[in-house]
C-alpha cells in the first residue's frame, strides 16, 4: 500500500514533524476501526482527511488527543509521546493518569461537528473558561484573551450572547475561538461544517482558511473538496481503517493512484 506518494519539501530540509503518528490501531469490541494509521504533520501545515462514512476519520482525531484510548501505535507531539511515558531503565510504556492527560490535551484544539459549546455560558465565557480555569489566568487576562480570540473569528459584537442566540456558523466560530484561546500546538477539526446550513458553511471555512494562512497547524476532516484543494498542504484518503492514499491535494485529486480513491472522489465531486 503506498503510504508516501510525494516527498514533503520540509522533510528534505531535515525538519522534524510537529505531530508524528505511527501504527495507530483502535477496535470497538470485535471490530477493528483503525488498522494501523501512520502519518506526519509538519508545523504550520494543514492536513485534510477525507474518506467515506465509517472509514474511521473521527476515530483518528479522537485518538490523537486521547478522547479515545488507542489500542496500539504511537503519537508524538514535538517529540513528546502522547498518552503515556516510557518509564524506568527498561523504558516500559506506562499510560498517563487522567490529570496528566489533561495537561497534554490542551496542546490539541478540538472543533466538534456539533460545536459542543457550553450552553449556560456566553460566547466570551465559553472562550475564557479554559484560560481561566485550566491555564490559571486572572479573570481580566482571561476575558482579554477571549475578546481577542472572538475578534479573530469576527464575533466581537456577539461576545455577550449565549450559544442559543447565535447561528450555527457563529457557534462554530465561537468553538474555534475557544480552541484558539488555549494556544494549542495544532487544532483538530471534525467535519466542522457538516452540521451547518449551506449558506453558513463559507464563514467557518473562511476563518479556517485564515488560520491556515497565519501558520496554524491543522488536521481537518471534511467533505468540502474545494476547501481541501485550496487550503490543504497534504491530503489523506482513508477507507476502512487504512490510509489508502496521501499526498498533495493536486496529486490526489488529479491522479489518484488507487481505484477506491477514484471512486470516492468521483462520487463526492459529482454530488
Amino acid at each position: 500500500m503506498p503510504l508516501e506518494t510525494r516527498t514533503d519539501p520540509s522533510r528534505l530540509a531535515g525538519e522534524r514533524p510537529l505531530l508524528s503518528v505511527r501504527g495507530l490501531r483502535k477496535r470497538y469490541g470485535e471490530r477493528e476501526i483503525l488498522k494501523g494509521i501512520s502519518f506526519d504533520v509538519m508545523a504550520g501545515q494543514t492536513m485534510v482527511l477525507i474518506g467515506p462514512s465509517g472509514s474511521g476519520k473521527t476515530t483518528v482525531l479522537r485518538c490523537l488527543n486521547h478522547l479515545e484510548t488507542p489500542d496500539a501505535g504511537t503519537i508524538e507531539l514535538t517529540g513528546e509521546p502522547i498518552g503515556g511515558a516510557y518509564v524506568g531503565e527498561a523504558a516500559r510504556w506506562t499510560p498517563l493518569t487522567e490529570s496528566q492527560l489533561a495537561l497534554q490535551r490542551r496542546k490539541f484544539g478540538f472543533v466538534f461537528q456539533r460545536f459542543n459549546l457550553f450552553p449556560h455560558l456566553t460566547a466570551a465565557q465559553n472562550v475564557a473558561i479554559g484560560p481561566r480555569k485550566v491555564l490559571g489566568l486572572s479573570r481580566e487576562a482571561a476575558e482579554a484573551r477571549a475578546a481577542e480570540q472572538l475578534a479573530r473569528v469576527s464575533l466581537a459584537e456577539h461576545m455577550h450572547k449565549r450559544p442559543s442566540q447565535l447561528s450555527g456558523g457563529q457557534q462554530q466560530r465561537v468553538a474555534i475561538a475557544r480552541a484558539l484561546a488555549m494556544d494549542p500546538r495544532l487544532i483538530l477539526f471534525d467535519e466542522p461544517t457538516s452540521a451547518l446550513d449551506p449558506e453558513l458553511v463559507h464563514e467557518v471555512l473562511d476563518v479556517m482558511g485564515a488560520l491556515a494562512r497565519e501558520g496554524m497547524t491543522m488536521i481537518v476532516v471534511t467533505h468540502e473538496m474545494s476547501f481541501a484543494r485550496r487550503v490543504a498542504d497534504t491530503l489523506i484518503f482513508m477507507a476502512d481503517g487504512h490510509i489508502v492514499e496521501q499526498g498533495s491535494p493536486e496529486a490526489v485529486f488529479s491522479a489518484p493512484r488507487e481505484e477506491k480513491t477514484q471512486r470516492f472522489l468521483s462520487h463526492i465531486l459529482n454530488r
Binding site: 490529570s99 495537561l103 490535551r105 490539541f108 478540538f110 466538534f112 459542543n116 457550553f118 480555569k133 480552541a179
Partner: peptide, 14 residues
C-alpha cells in the same frame, strides 16, 4: 456527552 468531551478537549480535569 459532548459537553464533557468539549471540556476535556480544553484540558479540564474531571
Amino acid at each position: 456527552k459532548g459537553q464533557t468531551e468539549a471540556a476535556k478537549s480544553i484540558g479540564m480535569t474531571q
